[in-house]
Simulated assay, not measured.
Amino acid sequence: MAKSKYEYVKTFESSTTLLPNTFMVVRIDGRGFHKLSAKYRFEKPNDRQALELMNAAATAVMKELPDINCAYGISDEFRQAAVSSYAIVRWKSSALPVFLNFAGLHELEASHINNLYNTTFWALRQKGGMDATQAEERLKGTLASEKNEILFSELKMNYKNEAEMFKKGSIVYRDYDNSSSGFSREASAPAVFNSEKPKLSKTQKEEERDRRVKASMTIENTDIIRDDFWDQRPWLLSGHLDS
């Protein structure tokens, strides 16, 4: 491409250097999902089949790429690696789901806040008889407690009864406790997960990769904002959140 009319694309290239002993998060967000969900009449605000499709796609990617420790998904986004091709294979239709990649860390609390808003918004429309503009105006400036009260008092809904997958999203991770590899929790975290990483021989690297491949894939709908989830699975964060 040098000295060609396409050489200008090099001006769009940029390099990013990762700090040592850090992990990378990739956010995959849905593109055109409004039209897709309308075409196939997804249930609002959450469609269980669509979410399970995304979980299956994320799991397939993790099986294909053993270096990925975990993936977190809610709504039309996943924080992991590209899942479009796997979702398309399982979709089997003319209008295909597409995911875009965004690198960076994002506040997980937003997922919970967004779902509470969406649940209340669609309840006001479906049960409260409001149009979109009216529902948006009703919710403008409201706190989480006020949205819960609207659901309970006005719409006879208890947000606590919503499915955990809708409220908390799905975390897909390599579970060494339940794996077929036979490693216990204490022994399961490969040396590559330790804060002080020794230099591994080629054979050791192959063994570590084999452990990752053999680890079972677990999907949970739980609160990953709290430390408990990560404290019980130290290998997921590679021991870099010691505080």
Rank of each mutant, 00 (worst) to 15 (best):
residue 69 N to D: 10
residue 50 A to H: 00
residue 47 D to G: 00
residue 83 V to W: 02
residue 30 G to M: 03
residue 82 A to E: 12
residue 91 W to H: 13
residue 92 K to S: 09
residue 89 V to Q: 14
residue 72 Y to V: 10
residue 82 A to C: 14
residue 60 A to Y: 08
residue 86 Y to C: 04
residue 52 E to D: 15
residue 63 K to M: 10
residue 81 A to T: 09
residue 112 H to K: 11
residue 48 R to V: 08
residue 69 N to A: 06
residue 106 H to S: 14
residue 103 A to D: 05
residue 66 P to H: 01
residue 66 P to D: 00
residue 41 R to S: 14
residue 54 M to P: 01
residue 94 S to N: 13
residue 64 E to V: 07
residue 62 M to H: 01
residue 32 G to T: 04
residue 109 E to G: 15
residue 77 E to G: 07
residue 87 A to P: 08
residue 99 F to Y: 14
residue 102 F to W: 07
residue 65 L to A: 09
residue 21 N to H: 11
residue 51 L to R: 07
residue 85 S to V: 12
residue 27 R to P: 08
residue 39 K to N: 04
residue 35 K to M: 10
residue 59 T to I: 09
residue 100 L to R: 15
residue 108 L to F: 01
residue 47 D to A: 03
residue 106 H to V: 15
residue 80 Q to P: 02
residue 87 A to K: 05
residue 81 A to C: 12
residue 100 L to A: 15
residue 29 D to E: 14
residue 52 E to A: 05
residue 42 F to A: 10
residue 80 Q to R: 07
residue 24 M to V: 00
residue 78 F to S: 04
residue 65 L to V: 15
residue 79 R to E: 09
residue 32 G to K: 00
residue 38 A to G: 06
residue 63 K to Q: 12
residue 110 A to D: 14
residue 64 E to W: 00
residue 74 I to L: 08
residue 25 V to A: 04
residue 49 Q to T: 09
residue 77 E to C: 07
residue 85 S to N: 13
residue 34 H to N: 09
residue 38 A to Y: 05
residue 23 F to C: 00
residue 106 H to C: 13
residue 76 D to W: 04
residue 22 T to S: 15
residue 97 P to R: 02
residue 84 S to L: 05
residue 96 L to D: 05
residue 105 L to V: 10
residue 74 I to P: 03
residue 111 S to G: 09
residue 55 N to H: 09
residue 108 L to W: 03
residue 88 I to Y: 00
residue 24 M to D: 02
residue 64 E to K: 14
residue 106 H to E: 11
residue 76 D to A: 08
residue 24 M to H: 02
residue 77 E to T: 04
residue 80 Q to G: 13
residue 75 S to Y: 11
residue 56 A to I: 07
residue 35 K to I: 04
residue 63 K to N: 10
residue 42 F to K: 01
residue 100 L to W: 11
residue 29 D to P: 07
residue 110 A to I: 14
residue 29 D to K: 05
residue 84 S to K: 04
residue 33 F to R: 03
residue 58 A to E: 07
residue 97 P to L: 00
residue 104 G to N: 02
residue 31 R to T: 12
residue 97 P to M: 00
residue 76 D to F: 06
residue 34 H to E: 11
residue 42 F to N: 02
residue 60 A to S: 14
residue 28 I to L: 13
residue 76 D to L: 06
residue 101 N to F: 01
residue 38 A to M: 11
residue 34 H to I: 06
residue 108 L to R: 05
residue 112 H to A: 13
residue 76 D to M: 05
residue 82 A to R: 14
residue 44 K to P: 13
residue 103 A to K: 02
residue 80 Q to A: 14
residue 104 G to H: 04
residue 47 D to T: 04
residue 83 V to D: 02
